[in-house]
Amino acid sequence: MASFEETGPRNPVTESIRVDKVHPRARFLDNARAIFVLILALIGLIPVLAMGLTAFKSRADVVAVPPKIAFEPTLEGFVFLLTERSQLSGTKLEEAKANADDLGLFGQIALRNGQRINGPSDYVTRLWNSLIIAGGSTIISVVLGLFAAYAFSRFDIPGKDDLLFFILSTRMLPAVVVTIPLFLMFRQLGLFDTHLGMILLYTVFNLSLTVWLLKGFIDEIPREYEEAALVDGYTRFQAFYKIVLPQAATGIAATTVFSLIFAWNEYAFALMLTSNNARTAPPAIATMLGRGGIEWSAIAAGTLTFLIPVVIITFALRRHLLRGVTFGAIRQ
């Protein structure tokens, strides 16, 4: 029976799974379906591809009508995005052209437009802020979430279900609803527009996710392992540290990445609770258009640098995706 289930033809049969032969029509339909889905997926990714193309277009190619599919790729967009430039003229331009060999790749690209690079742009600072804030908050929220998840998974806690639901519900609050009082609080405490304030906020914002996800992962580790360790004389903390943590490693990794992505993508809080010092990349990209001669190619370049890590992570995490986006409420 079991061997039949493993080897028997299951998928391609259309009407009844009790038929042993695969009808040619069923096989054809199956292939047609696969191709159809592939085409749908590719159509769905057109915007992402368009953005990728635009990032490597020159200023003129971006606004070409109709949009160019084939063009000469250039890193102009990235240069515009990442550097602060000034226009050169007359003798200075000649001088700069004479010394062009000393310039780096970005410098030469800027020179082609008659510009000299003065230094990194604001956007580089914004990216750094994003990295610091997303990284810092992720580390804290995963560590705290791990402790809380372990406690929720292993100990009797009065009102456990209500507490867990409360933790989940904090995530469902619209950002704008909490931001008004938070803005006043942060201003009072001197946390407005600081890295510390944003790290704290994102930590809390992600705690509901980390607690729920990690609780799910820890629930799957048999209690007996720790109980055996306790009998052998381990303390509770040793058992947690030496038994549970290594077992939950995959889950912790997945949780870390999810929390990193959410913090990395966050826009509303950052827009309202930062101004210049701690502003992260998403609100910066959104307000970049039309300021200081920033072009679409630069926006596209910024978007692309933002999207690539997320796309890679999506692939790396595809087994845990369902859990991650439903806070561990649903497991595959």
């Binding site: 990714l45 992402v48 993508n265």
Partner: peptide, 21 residues
């Protein structure tokens, strides 16, 4: 997985690149 990519992106960045589209 390819189909799932859009939901992992940052909504504001998505909005921005659709503005170009």
């Amino acid at each position: 997985t390819l189909i799932l990519v859009p939901m992992m992106l940052s909504p504001v960045v998505v909005g921005l690149f659709w503005k170009l589209m």
